[in-house]
Design a protein around this nucleic acid. Structure first.
Lengths: 343, 343
DNA sequence: CTGAAAGCGCTAACAA
DNA sequence: TTGTTAGCGCTTTCAG
């Protein structure tokens, strides 16, 4: 018992009219062509009766656009990306687009593979947080002027739309605050791969703040943690780091996962935050307000990032002669309990 | 300057062979047909040279399968769904499937609309957390025997694959614990719509535990919060609830968002958890271990839920005569600081 | 071993 | 006002 597909032709033959007519009516182009109201109604009725579902794949093939967008993030389970995704998805749906979501896990190979898949699937555009380093790769992967928005991370040497925040300034402000309340030995925690623009900009902000306050940079205070280890809650590198440099009184963590690592290790080491160790992190997470202690953080405007990204993408999709757009948004520094002065 | 598409025919004409041949070679069916190794190599080389990308949309239309799955959850930004999504996405990718992700926001209308979209897009199967109440609607929306896995929530009267946890038992265990450590007036926090199977099962577990301990049920102690208000951090209902019933010494929250609400309101009300108010919640979130106080929770095996769901879906996709599968997994009760006895 | 041709379901000239 | 026809790019009988 096969539910035999109901297609345009089904309707057409049942009604003894042409597929064209049915297509026209069902796409609302009937009025423009002044097609008989009665005929229109018959088509509409029959479509409903047979429970007709337009095949979007056929439509996509024919029209050369699938009304599908690709969203390629580092890790959809990270609340940072999850929340951006939500906004994008909702806005996309409003505009009639569906979203194919995938996570690269900060792996170049994976990213390239996923990108190819998206292109083969003929998505109309892509929003992505690239983990690539070499602009050439993206250039040769993507067709010329393919609608693309880079989010969170830009790629030097690769011209494209971009939506992100002022990472350097935000980090610098936070570090300034730590310095002003008396900290001199400030650790900087970042992730692999650290050539990622958002991370390196945050580091630049850190360095700049030290420089401005004539504090010598101690490279030992800069720790780069392995992304996958952090993901798997292996915090041993951080543990050793805090043991090795007990003189560090404050750390700045470059993303939310690292802040969690800090909370965890501080707990096991018995180092009290903020008495023994102050903490400010990039990225805000809902629960940072309720942790012990609550975590000072740099909050990115996630909803706006999502909205802007999609908006730019849709603009490029519409406009044929479209000029690339860059949107650098401001962050907000939420000072909470985890950052306080030296006694 | 148009980048002129490179298709099967491009390769075929350039090589003076037929599309058939090219297709066969590119799909690895050449060896089976004993096609000239040399010819094969020529095709492969030319494909690489022209940077050929197979059009999956055309392929999908022709083959009647798009290698795309739909994932419809309540809210992708909720870590509970985000983490399940991640597993599903990774496993799907391994199997050659892409994932169209969408969030229903617990709205029936939205869910129905999204479901239709997914079907129109010819996804090969769907994994979803339904917010529907009426099995009829799903029945008439979905083709007979359409590959579908319900996750987290089942739908009475609708036969389908299912993956979830033993909600009633898990909740009952948690409530038992609260009772055993001396609590009598225990509040139960749930969400709209509360006919959702997982929520109603949790409530049943709550009621059952009370009954087992001969504690009279006070319906005033059961609070149903509005999903959208909670989503927007409007916790006023909960605020009023805790004010109205100060005799409540412990609350059980039916999901992670409600636990956050409790932390927030307890803070504003100056009620100390767990001294003044004990708390156990369904769903574990990474940071519940580090909140003040750390939150006791019922952790669901998210990775397994994701894996099982996809696995079942893929099985049905393969097997034509496939029998529906139900998978009820166990949870883990993590007792932390937020639940302790009455002084 | 290789090619011709049909057709998946839909849209859009172009006719009538 | 409606119908005919030609594909979109691909796979797949069926011939040769």
């Amino acid at each position: 018992m096969k539910p035999k597909k109901v297609t345009l032709s089904s309707i057409a033959t049942e009604l003894q009219v042409s597929k064209t007519l049915v297509s026209l009516v069902l796409n609302g182009k009937a009025d423009a062509l002044a097609i008989n109201k009665l005929t229109q109604q018959k088509v509409l009725d029959k479509a409903r009766e047979l429970n007709y579902k337009p095949n979007q794949v056929a439509r996509g093939l024919r029209m050369g656009q699938t009304k599908t967008l690709g969203l390629l993030v580092a890790d959809i389970s990270n609340p940072f990306y999850a929340r951006i995704t939500r906004t994008i998805e909702h806005e996309a749906e409003k505009a009639g687009y569906s979203l194919i979501v995938c996570s690269s896990d900060e792996s170049k190979e994976r990213e390239i593979r996923l990108l190819k898949t998206l292109l083969n699937r003929q998505v109309d555009g892509i929003i992505m947080t690239t983990t690539l380093h070499d602009p050439k790769i993206l250039q040769q992967l993507l067709p010329h002027r393919f609608p693309l928005v880079l989010v969170d991370r830009s790629l030097a040497g690769f011209e494209s739309n971009f939506v992100g925040v002022d990472n350097a300034i935000s980090a610098e402000n936070a570090i300034n605050h730590l310095i002003e309340i008396g900290h001199k030995n400030i650790g900087f925690l970042t992730l692999t791969p650290d050539y990622i623009s958002s991370l390196s900009e945050r580091k630049a902000g850190y360095l700049h703040a030290l420089e401005r306050h004539s504090i010598a940079v101690n490279n030992n205070y800069i720790l780069q943690l392995d992304y996958l280890k952090i993901k798997n809650k292996d915090y041993s590198q951080l543990y050793q780091f805090l043991l090795d440099y007990p003189e560090i009184t404050a750390v700045f963590s470059a993303n939310n996962n690292l802040a969690v690592a800090c909370l965890s290790i501080a707990k096991t080491l018995g180092r009290k935050i903020p008495k023994d160790l102050s903490l400010i992190t990039f990225d805000d997470v809902e629960l940072f307000e309720y942790t012990a202690p609550s975590v000072s953080s740099i909050a990115q405007p996630l909803e706006i990032i999502g909205q802007k990204s999609l908006q730019i993408l849709l603009q490029q999709l519409k406009n044929d002669n479209f000029t690339l757009q860059k949107e650098i948004l401001s962050t907000q520094l939420n000072l909470r309990e985890s950052s306080c002065g030296i006694k």
